[in-house]
Structure formats: C-alpha cells, structure tokens
Design a protein around this nucleic acid. Structure first.
Lengths: 247, 247
DNA sequence: AGACTTTTAAATGTCTGACAAATGAAAATT
DNA sequence: AATTTTCATTTGTCAGACATTTAAAAGTCT
C-alpha cells in the first residue's frame, strides 16, 4: 500500500479513499479489525495524525467504528438502516436548502416517491401499521396539539405508511426523503393549513389501506400533494402582496 | 462555544456535530468562511489536531471544503447533486451488501422507485433524453460489447429515463438507488440473461416515452422487474443444484 | 503611471514526540 | 478457585515545529 504525495489532494483523503474501496469491494468484511494506527502509518508511509484524519473521515460515514484499549482499534462497521437514514435525511435537507429547489419540485418528488410504494403497502399492510397510523391520526385531532407536534405526527403517519410495504430498502429511501421534506413543507404552510382538511385526507388514506385499495391510496396522496401545493402558492402570494404593500 | 470533555464521545465528533448543526440550521451559509483552525482551537478549548479531525469529518460529508494559503481556510460547501448522489450510491451499496437484503427486496425497491417517475417522465420527456436513450439502446445491440459495458449502458439508459422527469430531487434519489443496485443485479444475472430480451423491453420503453404513454412505460418496467427476478431465481436454483452435486 | 516581480504574512498540510485514558489479558495474590 | 493487581497495547489528546500554498502588499522597472 502506497500513496502518491505529488498530487495536491490530501494524503488523508487518498488514504481514506483507498480504505473505503477495500470496504465497498468487500475485501474488508464487517467487524474485521484494521491494523493499528501505528501500523497503518508505517504501511502508507505517513505519520499517525494523517492516518487518524483518514480514519475520522471514514468514521463520519459510519464505515468504521473505533475502540480504545488493548485489542481495540478500528473495525469495519455494519452500516445500519438507521445510520444510513440519518445520513440521507441530512444530505437531502441540505440539498434542498442550498440549491434553490422550488417548493413544487420538492413536493412533487416527495409524493411521487410515496405513491411508488402505495400499491405494495395496500397489499401487504398489517395490523401493526394500521394501528400506528390510527394512533397518529387521533393525535392529530387533539385540540391542544402544537404545530411542531402536529408536524411530527404527520411525519410518523407517513413513515408508518411506507413501512407497510415491508421492504426495508424502500423504507430507507422514502423515510430519508420524507424526513427531509416534511419539516420544510410544514414551515412554509403551517400558517395557512387546515388541520381538518389534512386529517380528512389521512383518514381516507387509512381506510383505503384497510380495504387494501391501492388505487384509492394513490388517489388520496395525489389530493394531499395538490392541497399542499395550493397552500404553498397561497402563502407565497400573500407574502408577495405584503411585500409590495411595504414598498 | 464549549464542549463537554466528560462524555465518552470523541471531542472531534462533538465539535463536528456542533458545526454541522450550524450548517444544517442555516446559521452558517454557503461559501461562508469558518474561523481558522487556530481560532477554532481557541474557541472550543482544544488542540489543533482535534479541530482538524473534526473538520475532516465534515469534509467527508462534503459539508465543507478547505483551501490553503493566505485567506484560505474552511468554507461551507454548496452540496452539489453530484456529491450527494455519490454518497447515496456508496451508502446504498453498503446497505445492500452488509445487511443480507434478498435480491427480490432490492429489485422490488429499485423498480418501484423507477415506476414512480414514469408518469412524469412520459409527460415531460424531451428530445435530449430520447436521443440519449436511443444511443444507449443501439450500443446495447453491438455484438462486441463486454458485459461490463453492457451493464454501464443499461445504467445510463435508466438514468436518462429518470432525468426525463425534469425533477432534480427525484433524479437524485433514483440515480443513487439505481447506481447501487444495477451492478448488483448485473453480477448475479449476467450469466443467464438474454440481451435480446432486455433490449426488447428497453426498446418498448423508449417507444412508450415517444408516445408519452406513461401507463405503457410502467407496464414495461414491470415486465423488466419480473424478468430480472426470474433470472435471479434461475441462477440461484442452478447454484443450489451444483452445490448439492459436490456435497 | 502602469505592468511586472519580489516579498511577506497567513493559512492549511504534515511530522515528531509525548502523555492520558481505556481495556482486556496475564500474572500475582488470597 | 476466585479475586485483585499489574501490564502491554491502542486510541485520544496535546504542544510545537516545519513545509507548502496562496494572495495581498510592497517594491522595481519601463
């Protein structure tokens, strides 16, 4: 193992990249221990701090974990769905906030993805999901509920929905996207939205699932998408009006 | 700014986390310069190597970039779709390889996601996408094409398809998932697959798009999913048979 | 005055060496 | 045999130094 010091890329980035390749390719398997920092430093012919920076890069991606003490070291980490989901939600959030994505575009993507699993969900839904959705639906009807809690319950409702597909890979992709977009939507629309309207649609989704009617669920999700977009347009129009008034 | 040294968590992880929060919350905006490593070390009351490890963690997530020299430093990075896609593909690949996801589950998720954008694609597709898909389709018919190149062209075909939705958020989620899963599928099925069969379905997808017939595209994607699953089952049955023969 | 070159200061990149803290194995003791 | 102590190993953190890069500032020449 050796690294090219002539390029202007960081040594730690190169080393991280070559170790990452070993993990992704399967040459290093889950729970396998990497050589100690001192040994890696020798192998790559760099100093220990450089190796450490490389390992921290990998740790930031949850590719390795480290343990102190004798027989400690860096171990290849089994990437959990939870870790992956957290990363995806962060990335998706930043992608939206930093790239001037229009509300309609984000909204369209979120609902297109959710509708993708509606047929599977309707077919496979089990009592556990239905019960969870019922609980959230009732919570959304409570009068003392804060906007934050309503939003959180909204997210929980939709996460329960997609889990109904019984497909962890699908859940991973969708939950990341929903967790990133729902707060954004909430922030924009909470002033104008009617909880009753949303609860009505949610309730209809639930009954569609009970009847295992995928088409009905798809249709309700379309209604929800349209309602959300309409709200956003209303809010934006109001903002524009009040801005023009002050100038 | 101060950090708790009494917990078991690395100082560099805590510092990275608190800077990450500033970025995600918008307190630090794109292209804003962070204090120099020496200043950060003073603010957080830790040494420079610890600060550096924290910054490398953030760099690994493409949240910051660094520049050497006077007036250099660490800057909040605008997360590009490309960076985000690369990260998602790596994460999704590892999620599949490390968590014993069945082929059917991965395959189902990949096609459910792709079908999600089929209606949008059919409606909005432009000449650029159609042309790109035509090019790939012709390439797939060339007799001298290696398995690797056929697979790469397959990926390119589907990426062009989803780009037809003209929704970068959707493209991000889908391209990551396709890039992760297609090589996996290829590895499993390349021995048994019939290129003619796949090309036939691709060709049908293309004509559906030309006619802006979303339902037809969805139907063809279902055919492709079923064919892929069937291939995988065949291959696995053969493997099982040869294993039993040797024992 | 304007264009070019040189200097310089500031910042990251890397290295050396050291000590602290954790941790499990092995040795010593009861 | 069970418990305690010792010990070696490894990561976590620190201090200080030098190399390298970079752009601004100063200096020089036409």
């Amino acid at each position: 193992m050796k690294i090219d010091p002539d390029t202007n890329i960081d040594l730690s980035a190169q080393i991280a990249s070559s170790i990452r390749d070993l993990i992704v390719s399967g040459a290093l398997i889950v729970d396998e221990r990497l050589p100690s920092e001192a040994e890696l430093a020798e192998q790559f012919e760099v100093s220990r701090p450089t190796i450490r920076e490389a390992l921290k890069r990998l740790a930031a991606q949850s590719l390795i974990r480290t343990q102190r003490g004798a027989f400690g070291g860096a171990f290849v980490n089994r990437l959990s769905y939870d870790d992956a989901r957290t990363q995806l939600a962060t990335t998706a959030t930043l992608l939206l906030s930093m790239n001037e994505v229009s509300f309609d575009t984000a909204c369209e993507a979120r609902f297109a993805l959710e509708r993708a699993c509606a047929p599977l969900v309707a077919e496979r839904r089990e009592e556990a999901q239905l019960a969870k959705m019922k609980v959230e639906l009732e919570k959304q009807g409570e009068s003392g509920l804060s906007d934050e809690d309503f939003c959180a319950s909204d997210v929980a409702f939709h996460l329960a929905l997609i889990d109904g597909a019984q497909n962890p890979v699908l859940s991973y992709h969708l939950s990341g996207s929903i967790e990133a977009m729902q707060p954004l939507m909430n922030m924009i629309t909470y002033t104008a939205r009617s909880r009753a309207e949303i609860i009505g649609i949610h309730s209809s989704i639930l009954s569609g699932m009970e009847k295992q009617d995928g088409d009905a669920v798809v249709h309700d999700l379309e209604r929800l998408e349209n309602y959300t977009k309409k709200l956003a347009h209303t809010v934006m129009a109001e903002k524009r009006a009040s801005r023009e008034k002050t100038t």
